[in-house]
Design a binder for these strands. Structure first.
Lengths: 235, 235
DNA sequence: CAGATAATCAAACGAATGTTTGAATGAGGG
DNA sequence: CCCTCATTCAAACATTCGTTTGATTATCTG
């Protein structure tokens, strides 16, 4: 029983944090679920904060490593990378983890929450785990989208993270299966890439505000040409 | 001083909840900030949960009302609505609130968090405040995007909410001003609409997986035609 | 002004929390 | 078997929390 108690604590914490958040999950709830003694948390992890750190590190370090490796492989390919490829490299490892089972789903829920809701005492975690990855991802996106000024790219990267965060949290694999018409869980990656690549590729805003939302122009889907700009018909 | 203490409590709670979350914000911290007595919370609101409810209701009821009115005005216009118009009607009131001052920014942060992190005892709040609005918005979107099957539309609506949630939380007006090239805060609505409308308008996934992320096709921006699908050059 | 109601106050209450402690038990090695 | 270290345990501790209570103060109205 080398690490059995430790693993059980991590599993229980992961599940309860994902469902109730960090502050609303007590150590007594975790240890009850893990069938362990309350003091085991302090013995194995030192403190609640360290337990939270360990829960993240357990799965996020391999995940981040994989994502970085995927992005590096893209860059080493010696050819221009498409937006779709960059997005797939960034997103697919996390969706695969999510599909591994209940633990994967729980962890990606935590991922989503951890981008938004992190206790004050653990504020370093996002930068620690994501800093390099996001930098790399942004660099690759910048190369695939040379028409975008840096500021606008930064905005769109934020939008992309918002989509991912919400996807991890708000949509379980069960919800994806319920949307049969959309093809269910296996199609989620493609749904995400379809949506995000279109948004990322959208033309830069003109300096004179040509994209004012007053309906003078709209993007429409023309089956022979794809998405194009078209003037509105006057009534 | 009719409602002065009550307003101070709401303001203090709003600020601290936005910064630290609900569970990590104690009533003693709120009352210290509001220069009020601890028991004032129970006198004016009854409980901490009711205070949370009141913080949301104070600004969300007018905001939701305005959003519904904007959407209703669109539908009453007697002509086809564009995606851009629907997005603007849904998003612009919240961005205006956000720009009113620090209180607006705090509240939209709360909005973003409230879509994701809500205490178990307050699980009814999202449906209570958003149910009708999101239904209405989805109906309007379905009409502007008739090429999308319902399941796929539901997914893209989730993605849209993720973008908004993250925008409210992760980007303050100060961050927007820092991105001068992107045009700062006044352009945020346009940035959002540009990104979201492109994503929403993206063609439906084909049943045979034509959008597989293997790089065979990519969407590219052709200045004369807009975003089109193009086969990759072979190396 | 007096009485009633509203609002505030300090203290107390009961519960919950994370951390610590020293004893007890388990495991491994000589 | 004994010793050492690792692990677990129950109890205690100090702190924090939301809620309640009864007294006090403030405000309003006739």
């Amino acid at each position: 029983m080398e690490d059995d108690t430790r693993q059980r604590l991590l599993d229980a914490a992961e599940a309860l944090f994902a469902e109730h958040g960090f502050a609303d999950t007590s150590l007594r709830a975790i240890t009850a679920r893990a069938k362990a003694n309350l003091a085991a948390v302090n013995y194995h992890f030192g403190s609640k904060d360290e337990l939270i750190r360990a829960v993240f590190a357990r799965r996020l370090e391999p995940l981040t490593g994989e994502r970085l490796a995927r992005l590096a492989a893209l860059e080493a390919g010696g050819r221009a990378v498409t937006v779709e490829e960059a997005l797939a490299a960034f997103i697919e490892p996390s969706l695969r983890l999510r599909r591994e089972g209940p633990h994967g789903e729980r962890f990606t829920r935590l991922l989503g929450r951890g981008l938004i809701e992190i206790p004050d005492s653990l504020r370093e975690l996002p930068r620690h785990h994501y800093g390099q990855l996001l930098e790399r991802f942004q660099q690759i996106l910048a190369r695939t989208l040379p028409h975008l000024p840096p500021g606008e790219l930064r905005w769109r990267l934020r939008f992309t993270l918002g989509v991912l965060s919400f996807t991890y949290i708000a949509a379980s694999p069960r919800a994806a299966e319920a949307d049969q018409i959309a093809g269910g869980e296996e199609r989620l990656l493609q749904q995400l890439i379809r949506f995000l690549s279109a948004g990322l590729r959208a033309p830069e805003l003109d300096a004179d505000g040509a994209a004012a939302p007053d309906g003078r122009f709209q993007q429409v889907f023309d089956p022979s040409r794809g998405v194009v700009e078209k003037a509105r018909h006057k009534i």
